[in-house]
Design a protein around this nucleic acid. Sequence first.
DNA 1: GATCGGCCATGCGCCGAGGGTATCGCCGAC
DNA 2: GTCGGCGATACCCTCGGCGCATGGCCGATC
Lengths: 284, 284
Amino acid sequence: MADLDLRRLRYFVAVAERLHFSRAAEELLIAQPALSRQIRALEKELRTELFVRDSHGVELTDTGRQLLDDARPLLAAADAARRRVDRAARADRTLVVGFRTGIRVTDAVRDFTAAHPEVTVEVRSVEWDDQAEALLDGRVDVAYVRLPVLADGLALTPLYSEPRMAALPAGHPLAAKDALTSAELARQTEILHLCVNPDPNPGGPRPVSAIRTVEEKLEYVAAGRGVCYLPRSATDLYRRADVRCLPVTDLPPDEVALAHAADRPSPLIDAFREAARRTAPPEA
Amino acid sequence: MADLDLRRLRYFVAVAERLHFSRAAEELLIAQPALSRQIRALEKELRTELFVRDSHGVELTDTGRQLLDDARPLLAAADAARRRVDRAARADRTLVVGFRTGIRVTDAVRDFTAAHPEVTVEVRSVEWDDQAEALLDGRVDVAYVRLPVLADGLALTPLYSEPRMAALPAGHPLAAKDALTSAELARQTEILHLCVNPDPNPGGPRPVSAIRTVEEKLEYVAAGRGVCYLPRSATDLYRRADVRCLPVTDLPPDEVALAHAADRPSPLIDAFREAARRTAPPEA
DNA sequence: GATCGGCCATGCGCCGAGGGTATCGCCGAC
DNA sequence: GTCGGCGATACCCTCGGCGCATGGCCGATC
């Protein structure tokens, strides 16, 4: 039994997702006849029909659906493997540091570079909902994260913590105070949650709106649609007159940690971790 | 970034496992130069060395080890996907029933075939350590299993249970009794465990020996090296003069169930499950 | 109801990837 | 020094995949 061909699988997924050969071919940057032939060849290899093509268009068969379910994770795994190899190949020459808005990385990078001038340090911003993936598949070597982190397979080094703040509209009755408690906020107003994943559970209930950035979040707050929690570095960064930010005294502080893939130890990662620890801001 | 090629990955794994190009090529049924070229091409594609080749032979680099770690599960996933598609393709024409020694399947097959004469029923024996895999990747559609089953993703239908027996050498002091308790066995003798996996945890401690079949197990018992537990159907099947089998009164009976992959429902599987339930032997 | 347009399949020629055979280069063993 | 084992290279051939042009089918349009 010959191997499946990942290129053909990718072609198949492209067609299955669009149910349209010509458009899929366009997306794949090949001509439509080539795509038709490849799909036919795949069907022949598997000795089964994957699509029903009739005058109404193209549809998946049951077998096709089965293959689609398998093909997507398989292709993702292949990509991840490829990235991990890429990472291993440059492991002793380059360090890729992931971070998110509001986290200061320059001090640690400078400290690290002083000790390892031969190593190229890349700094790359990482989406929150992708940070664990990015670490595990090798797109970044280490990443600053805010605890808690939900994924397995990551080694975490706590670095520092910062007060948790609440952002509320400037005219809000609570905005006159100097500090707040979570009870006051829970009782008085609706809390906006940052929804990072485009569609966390498809079909299910979802947060107000697909808010992806802190700016967007604050926009909602300024519009009087609610309040939200933020770490202090975020409120410092995005100061605005129509939003007031106050410390919330009874919530545990927001902890920032350095994460890296738990397998695949590396002296460079260890060195960067020490650099990050040395340069972490003092506790507030 | 082009896709990894699974064929090349398979070549790579073959070399990595043998650390010998010529022998790997022989195994792969290609000539050695072709293999050398493919590995070189893979290294070029990944822009990194995977092996160090010197006069002492061939060795993996760190990157090569990383790739090997990823390649094996990837290839296994591809094979499993292929098998699941094969299964989906024949889902409404064929039913593959897995079973293990000592389980009687003919009654259920006959009952099922009477109701579905158009369906081809294949019966295939399955290794214990492979039964969950075989169900999940579609090599078998349903399988008779003995509880408990350790794998997730399987739907289980209990069918019947049978007494648990102990097998001991004919001359053993306890062999004169009519029945035993687990306490007597635990106190008096060493228990042989059936070691089904060729090497359960490489490098770690392992059971006495790689016993794979009931016959082998009984051979050890006859040789006086221990006693073992078996379900009654097994002791009935492999009767021998130098081994005595007695019921163990205080152990829960051995339960036989029908298992199938929890996703991918199928009317044929449902029908076979009913047939199995109808034809299950009465409780002892 | 003839034509047109959208869409997938097919025919054909080209090119490159991959395989086989023969051979080279290196190194260690005897 | 020679020989044998092993991986790399040279050279050639085959086949698979692609693009272009075109065919065949069907539904929409006027």
